[in-house]
Design a binder for these strands. Sequence first.
DNA 1: GGCAAAATTTGATCGACGTCAAACGCTCCT
DNA 2: AGGAGCGTTTGACGTCGATCAAATTTTGCC
Lengths: 234, 234
Amino acid sequence: MEHSAKTMNSNLKLSNRDRSVLMKTPFLTGLSTNSTLRMLSAMSVVNLATRHSIFREGERAELFYCVLSGYVRLYRLSQEGREADIRICGPGDTFAECLLYGEDTYPYHAQAAENATLATFDIQMVREIASEEKDVAQAVMMVLSRHLLTTMNCVANDRLFTAPQRVANYILERCPVDGGPASIRLPFQKSLLAGMLGLAPEALSRAFSTLRKSGVTVRGRAIQVMDVSNLRNL
Amino acid sequence: MEHSAKTMNSNLKLSNRDRSVLMKTPFLTGLSTNSTLRMLSAMSVVNLATRHSIFREGERAELFYCVLSGYVRLYRLSQEGREADIRICGPGDTFAECLLYGEDTYPYHAQAAENATLATFDIQMVREIASEEKDVAQAVMMVLSRHLLTTMNCVANDRLFTAPQRVANYILERCPVDGGPASIRLPFQKSLLAGMLGLAPEALSRAFSTLRKSGVTVRGRAIQVMDVSNLRNL
DNA sequence: GGCAAAATTTGATCGACGTCAAACGCTCCT
DNA sequence: AGGAGCGTTTGACGTCGATCAAATTTTGCC
């Protein structure tokens, strides 16, 4: 029955966790009952195995996506086949939503970086719903604004900081704000983090070892910071 | 009366060119008469001299902007005072519009890169208008979508291409599509182009001289391409 | 035109990071 | 336990682009 790694579900077949993420999506949170129902009618859910391609650059776009669980990698290819990650999407993130009012083909490749559950939305239908339901339009604007903000941040980080600084920033964004010790756990492979920061995996590894001097210890996916406020000074 | 380089105008005092750009803004084009009037009531026009600061990172945001003429530089500062450009905005571009539904402080510095005329929009008021007028909400979504798309492009370019390739891309985007010879004229200083491409001015200069081998001649702001299709292959 | 200031180019140097290859470690599988 | 396969680390090396300084060109202004 299932010969591909892709599974289509009705949204009744969601895990509790996925359902909870789905409802916290900016696209569905705070909507009127009516709007929520309409959005759900434009939505499906898919399960994807690691490395499964979601869409390819240049394909005609009919859906945009929201990650419920797992991670998705958005990337471009150079002529010679080098890959550059543009964005890593985790639970709650949306992608290709800029096509609601933009081009009609996907501007990058998308691939499941781990087993993932995604909500898919029909672009045409959502465009129509947004033109009729104010709360949906507002949700779309909020999502787009936030996404734009983080992407501009990404440009600034790439241009302003070195590899160890970018890694330190990543860690600090996920640490309690006060000083003192802290420990966090990477939600995915290091190679994904590398792509997210615009680095080769080797460069990430070296960045971590540079940060040892600043009190950062890494073992597998576990990261320990001796003194957060110390790390904050570069 | 005017001791700063900043001038506030009623929108009656616009040059023809500025008025035409203003009306072609995605924010004002295709709107109903009523929506247009409401948007104009949320708008002012300012003239700025070269290098005049428009806002600083962290400032409370009350306005977003649309460039009517001239160019604006959005940038971040590192601790040590190094500047990194995030975006160069020209006529028709908007900036800080992501604050309509995002944070309430500007996430970067903005500075006039030349004498410039800007339309300013009151964020609060536009938010209110967008919640009532569907065509305005749609215009906002289109602007955000387009902006997001170009910013993701920027990340991809930075990560995928070398300096000469990025410069070649810039030129090609502004050339007639067919092969053969072409010539274009930079609309601003080379140092601005450098910042736009994420390069130091020296690196841009060297990139141009690398491209001489590929038939690109530069004299001042004039750029000549011997064979466009040739340049397209890296 | 001619001077002062700014922008751009060129040269030299250096650090950061990508790439390739090899070693190491971990996980999963039987 | 033994291995195969993958992810990560480490080393060696090369390239790209930033930086500093100086030369040169362009621009703005009387």
